[in-house]
């Protein structure tokens, strides 16, 4: 019988620190599978963010660098420019990519750096205890919006993928979700495309993934998946953006 499911070579055999129902574990595995399938483990350099995935390098089994909060794309830009033969990607949360690191994000995209960006949008700050993210929905309660996000006071959910799509340097953007097995398959397909684009020197590619955070959404893992499906996708529609 053929073995059709196995532990990816690019993923270390270890227990992660993530909460039950968190999306990071699924995404780490998808990236590892894609790295294996494209046979790039020996060339890949990952940039781990500051946020819940800060120790992603303890889970992936390839070269990685830490970056200061928001600076992953500045670090990645330099690595790729001096080592074109390597495959360089950043793994960033919504606060990292769309709040503190907005400047680095926009300018790396505008320069058309040949990089792959995996952008995890869970509409909240996980590691620091559930504060408002730039992508927090209107009326969503967080530690810093206890009465719900109010557009008058906190503005609107930031659609940075749509903003980036306006830039000529950007070649590929897709928004996917982890709320069902079908969507996870689509997510993997998009991530593979984003890596393949770099291998083929096509240019800046970003996949935004809607990901559950049951702990700070204050609901169960299964309710979290339903919340993405029924509520979050209305603000952040899935599909190819560019």
């Amino acid at each position: 019988m053929d073995k059709i499911y196995t532990h990816p070579r690019a993923l270390r055999k270890t227990v992660t620190h993530y909460c039950p129902g968190c999306g990071h574990g699924i995404l780490h595995r998808i990236i590892a599978e894609v790295v294996d399938e494209l046979a790039i483990r020996e060339k890949v350099i990952g940039i781990a963010p500051v946020g819940c995935a800060v120790i992603a390098y303890d889970y992936w089994d390839f070269d990685c660098s830490e970056a200061a909060h928001g600076r992953a794309l500045a670090v990645a830009t330099a690595i790729k420019r001096v080592r074109k033969e390597n495959i360089v990607f950043t793994y960033q949360g919504d606060g990292d990519l769309a709040a503190i690191g907005t400047n680095e994000t926009i300018h790396a995209a505008n320069r058309g750096e040949n990089l792959t960006v995996i952008f995890i949008n869970n509409a909240i700050y996980g590691m620091t205890g559930g504060q408002m993210a730039p992508t927090t929905l209107l009326n969503q309660k967080t530690a810093t919006t206890p009465k719900g996000r109010n557009a008058q006071l906190q503005g609107y959910p930031l659609k940075i993928s749509e903003m980036l799509a306006l830039l000529p340097g950007v070649k590929y953007i897709e928004r996917t979700s982890l709320h069902s097995p079908q969507e996870i398959i689509k997510t993997k397909k998009a991530i593979k495309q984003a890596f393949l684009n770099q291998v083929e020197n096509i240019g800046f590619s970003l996949v935004e993934v809607l990901s559950p955070c049951p702990t700070y959404w204050g609901i169960s893992p299964s309710q979290s998946l339903n919340w993405i499906r029924d509520t979050m996708v209305k603000e952040f529609p899935l599909g190819r953006i560019k």
């Binding site: 970056a67 600076r71 670090v75 330099a78 420019r81 001096v82 400047n103 680095e104 926009i106």
Partner: peptide, 23 residues
């Protein structure tokens, strides 16, 4: 490689990245 960075913050993080590769 020469890059005019978008800010001093980006510039110092770029040299962090470049130095991390050994150059």
């Amino acid at each position: 490689v020469f890059i005019q960075a978008e800010s001093e913050v980006a510039a110092i993080n770029m040299v962090y990245g470049a130095a991390a590769t050994g150059v």
